[in-house]
Design a protein around this nucleic acid. Structure first.
Lengths: 102, 102
DNA sequence: CAATATACTTTGTAACACAAAGTAGGAGGT
DNA sequence: ACCTCCTACTTTGTGTTACAAAGTATATTG
C-alpha cells in the first residue's frame, strides 16, 4: 500500500470520459469513422456526440474532414498523432492503476 | 469496426471517476485504509476526498468505521462485497473497451 | 498558550454531461 | 408542389459535478 504508486493526475480528464474514451479507442482501431457510424456504435444523442467530438477536436486529439458522398455531406473523424500519444500515455497510467486488482 | 462491441453505459459513472476509481482500487488491494493514508497517496484536498468517500459510501461501495487510537480519532475505509463486485464488473467492461489498442 | 493533527463541513464557482428540440440544405417519394 | 427523411449540426436548458478554499470541533504536543 505504501509502495503502491497512484497518480490520478496522470489520467487526463479530457480522455477520461466514457464517450470520449470510447471514441478515441474506436478511432485508434480504424483509419477513420464518419459521424453516423460513431452515433450508431455509441448509442448517444446528437448533441451529446457533437459536443464530445468538438472537445476532442479543440484539444487536438482528433481531426475532422468534411466531404460529400454524392450530394450528401459526410463528416469523417480520425485520431491525430498527438491523440494517439496521449491516449497511449493515458492507457499506460490507467493500466498501472488497475493492474493487480482481483 | 462494425463487429466491435462498445458499451459505454456499462462503465458505471459512480466508479468511472479518477479519484473514486483510485480509492476503490486501493481498497481492493488491502484490508482497509484510514483517511490520512488515502489523503497522502491520492494527494488531493480534504473537501475533495471527503466528498468522493461520501459518494462511495452512499452508493454502498465502501464501508466506514470510526474508532480511536489513543485519544485520536481514526476513520477507516473498506470496500464492501457489493463494491468489489461492481468494481469487477466495471473493470471487465473497461478492459473490453481498451483491449486491442496499440 | 500556541501550534499541530484528524476528519470533517460549508461555501462557492466553473465546468460538465446530457437531453430535447430546432435548424439548414439537399434527396427522394407521391 | 408538398412532405418526409437524412446528415450534421446548434441552441437552450437543467441538473450534477469536481474541486478549492476556508472554517470547524476536538484533542494532542511543544
Amino acid at each position: 500500500m505504501q509502495g503502491r504508486e497512484i497518480d490520478i493526475h496522470g489520467l487526463d480528464p479530457i480522455i477520461h470520459e466514457r464517450v470520449r474514451l470510447a471514441i478515441l479507442v474506436l478511432l485508434s482501431e480504424t483509419e477513420s469513422l464518419d459521424y453516423n457510424s460513431l452515433k450508431k456504435v455509441l448509442k448517444i444523442t446528437d448533441g451529446n456526440l457533437v459536443s464530445h467530438l468538438r472537445k476532442l477536436e479543440d484539444n487536438g486529439l482528433i481531426s475532422v474532414k468534411k466531404s460529400f458522398v454524392g450530394r450528401r455531406p459526410r463528416t469523417t473523424y480520425s485520431i491525430t498523432e498527438e491523440g494517439r500519444q496521449r491516449l497511449s500515455e493515458y492507457l499506460k497510467n490507467l493500466k498501472q492503476l488497475i493492474s493487480g486488482v482481483e
